[in-house]
Simulated scan of single mutants.
Amino acid sequence: MSSRILVRPADPGKTTAFYRDVLGLAIYRTFPGGTVFFLGQGLLEVSGHGDGGTPAGLAIWVQVRDLEAAVADLAEHGVRPDREPRLEPWGLREAWISDPDGLRIVLVEVPEDHPIRTDTRPAG
């Protein structure tokens, strides 16, 4: 079984470029009218054309190794956080950004001592 989030953007080219070039998501496959990106253990499909609206409360959770570095890299692409990095009460470091249609993306760094940490590879 696999899972996929479907995004129907107002401007498919701009949104595809955002996920590919700004967030740096790897491409799983392309097809006429769409691109499917790897997104952790699932997939993110940008296809079709929508009104650019996003459902209230919907967000994409993206884990990063180094939150400060990720935010700095995004700033080089002109992306400013909707909410600056901070340590949450549940022990995760988070920053919020939005895609071109306003879909919230929660960038998450899991501290080494956090119980949900599963990546045991050395940093670097």
Score class of each variant (00 low, 15 high):
1 M>G: 15
2 S>G: 00
4 R>M: 13
4 R>S: 08
4 R>G: 00
6 L>S: 11
7 V>Y: 10
7 V>P: 05
8 R>Y: 14
9 P>F: 10
11 D>S: 15
11 D>C: 09
11 D>Y: 07
13 G>T: 15
14 K>A: 15
15 T>K: 13
15 T>M: 15
16 T>G: 02
17 A>N: 03
18 F>C: 03
18 F>R: 11
19 Y>N: 04
20 R>V: 02
21 D>A: 03
23 L>F: 02
24 G>E: 08
25 L>Q: 03
25 L>C: 05
26 A>Y: 03
28 Y>C: 06
28 Y>V: 03
29 R>L: 13
30 T>L: 12
30 T>R: 15
32 P>A: 14
32 P>M: 06
34 G>Q: 01
34 G>R: 07
36 V>P: 05
36 V>Y: 03
37 F>I: 07
38 F>I: 02
39 L>P: 01
40 G>S: 07
41 Q>L: 10
41 Q>R: 15
41 Q>V: 09
41 Q>D: 12
43 L>P: 01
43 L>D: 02
44 L>R: 02
46 V>D: 08
46 V>K: 03
47 S>Q: 07
48 G>R: 05
52 G>H: 04
52 G>M: 06
52 G>R: 04
53 G>D: 13
56 A>K: 14
57 G>D: 02
58 L>F: 15
58 L>Q: 13
59 A>Q: 04
60 I>L: 15
62 V>K: 02
66 D>W: 02
67 L>K: 03
67 L>H: 06
68 E>R: 12
68 E>W: 03
69 A>H: 09
69 A>D: 10
69 A>F: 02
69 A>Q: 12
70 A>W: 04
70 A>Y: 05
70 A>T: 13
71 V>Y: 02
72 A>C: 06
72 A>S: 11
73 D>S: 12
75 A>Q: 13
75 A>S: 12
76 E>I: 01
77 H>W: 03
77 H>Y: 07
78 G>F: 01
79 V>C: 10
79 V>K: 07
81 P>N: 03
81 P>H: 10
81 P>C: 09
82 D>F: 00
84 E>T: 05
85 P>R: 04
86 R>H: 10
86 R>L: 09
86 R>I: 06
86 R>Q: 14
87 L>S: 11
88 E>A: 13
88 E>D: 13
89 P>W: 06
90 W>T: 08
91 G>S: 09
93 R>N: 08
93 R>Y: 05
93 R>T: 09
94 E>F: 00
95 A>M: 09
97 I>M: 08
98 S>A: 13
99 D>G: 09
100 P>F: 06
101 D>T: 06
101 D>Y: 07
103 L>T: 09
103 L>H: 05
104 R>W: 00
106 V>C: 11
108 V>R: 00
108 V>F: 00
109 E>S: 06
110 V>D: 04
111 P>C: 11
112 E>N: 12
114 H>P: 07
114 H>D: 09
114 H>R: 10
114 H>I: 11
117 R>I: 08
118 T>Y: 13
118 T>C: 01
119 D>Q: 12
120 T>G: 00
123 A>C: 05
124 G>P: 02
124 G>Q: 02
